[in-house]
Nucleic acid binder design. Structure first.
Lengths: 120, 120
DNA sequence: GTGCGTTATATCCGACCGGACATAGCGCTA
DNA sequence: TAGCGCTATGTCCGGTCGGATATAACGCAC
């Protein structure tokens, strides 16, 4: 990931807007990935520097965007419980990441042209 | 622009993040286009339902993202003055719209797969 | 059965953002 | 020269969002 001297790096992020005014962006996707990686909403929130309250409400919002839950959570038990992605949840992450890489590949030349516009 | 029965429409929006924490999204680009179309920041703001104050500060923010001004404005004169895009400003709009169409073309099949995930 | 960490939810508060309003300067036009 | 509309900028206020905190329930481990 080297960069040419003086040419600024531009990062392209995608946001998917649904009909009902909700949307999905990179933050929510990263949260889902962290939940999958750590096995709990609380641990995912901690690693991303957000409160459990916020992490939970984001998960809620994603579920409402999709019309179905994206995580299954269980309180109590070993380690206090935990959470993992539903099939729809991990499919959502996969779709988003594929969208991202496809878009990146299709736009990198124009993105470089845009980067050249920026004063340095 | 027909849609299959029951399949929700997803809109893909791009956001370009620069190194200094600033970014450019569809709202700012539409504002620039409105300025080009109407010949003034004030008129552009009115057609987009925002105050002159806000329109002007957005223009300012875009300029700081790019490191150079995106509009040239002149107070006084016929009609009170006006504003138009600089060369960098219209190049920015062109780049963004091209990014958008390229990304749209490259992702529409995956986007359809994502749309199928959404409960109806 | 006590303890622990997590889920789930309510409430309160401060920070931030945008909207509303105010003001000053500018230059053509009538 | 008076007026108009736009640029440019400051200030204040209210709504919204996130952070902090509190509480209850749950179920395994010890």
């Amino acid at each position: 990931m080297t960069r040419h001297a003086g040419v600024p790096v531009l990062r392209l992020t995608l946001r998917i807007d649904t009909e009902n005014g909700r949307w999905l962006g990179p933050g929510k996707v990263r949260l889902l990935e962290a939940i999958a990686a750590h096995g709990s909403i609380a641990a995912a929130g901690r690693t991303m520097g957000m409160s459990y309250r916020r992490a939970w409400s984001l998960v809620e919002a994603i579920g409402e965007s999709l019309g179905r839950p994206v995580v299954t959570a269980r309180p109590g038990g070993a380690g206090g419980g935990g959470a993992s992605l539903t099939e729809a949840g991990s499919a959502l992450v996969d779709c988003y990441r594929r969208l991202e890489s496809d878009a990146q590949a299709a736009t990198n030349v124009t993105l470089a042209r845009l980067a050249a516009l920026i004063a340095r």
